[in-house]
Computed example of a mutant assay.
Amino acid sequence: MPISRVVQMLAALVTILMVALAGAVGAQAGTARGLESRSQLMFFNHAYGVIDRVTADAVEHSAYLREFANFQVRTTTGTGGVTWTGRYLYGRETYFELFGVGDLPDTGYGSAGLAVSVERAGGLATVVERLRDQGVAEPVRFLQTRDFGDGVPVPWFDAVYVTDEIDAFLGWGMEYRPEYFADPRSNTEPPARPGDVGRERYLPDTYRDRLMRDVTGVRIAITGGDLADTVPLLRAGGFAVRPVPGGGVVAHRGGTTMRLDVVPRDEVGLRRIDMSLNRSLRTRHEERIGRSTLTVGPGPRAVWTFPDVE
Score class of each variant (00 low, 15 high):
A12Y: 09
T15F: 09
M18H: 11
A20V: 12
A22G: 13
G23H: 14
T31L: 13
A32L: 04
G34Y: 03
L35T: 07
L35P: 06
L35Y: 11
S39A: 11
R53C: 06
T55S: 15
A56W: 11
D57L: 14
S62A: 09
F71V: 05
T76I: 11
T77E: 02
T77F: 01
G81D: 00
T85H: 06
Y88N: 01
E93C: 13
Y95R: 09
L98I: 03
G100Y: 06
Y109L: 05
A115C: 10
A125C: 10
V127R: 10
V127L: 15
V136Q: 01
E138W: 07
V140R: 12
V140C: 02
V154S: 04
P155W: 05
A182T: 13
A192H: 00
T206V: 09
D209R: 15
V215L: 07
V218P: 02
D229H: 15
G238W: 08
F239I: 00
V241T: 02
G246H: 01
V249G: 05
R253D: 08
T257K: 13
R259C: 14
V263L: 11
V268W: 10
I273V: 12
D274P: 14
N278Q: 04
H285F: 15
T293R: 05
V303A: 04
D308F: 13
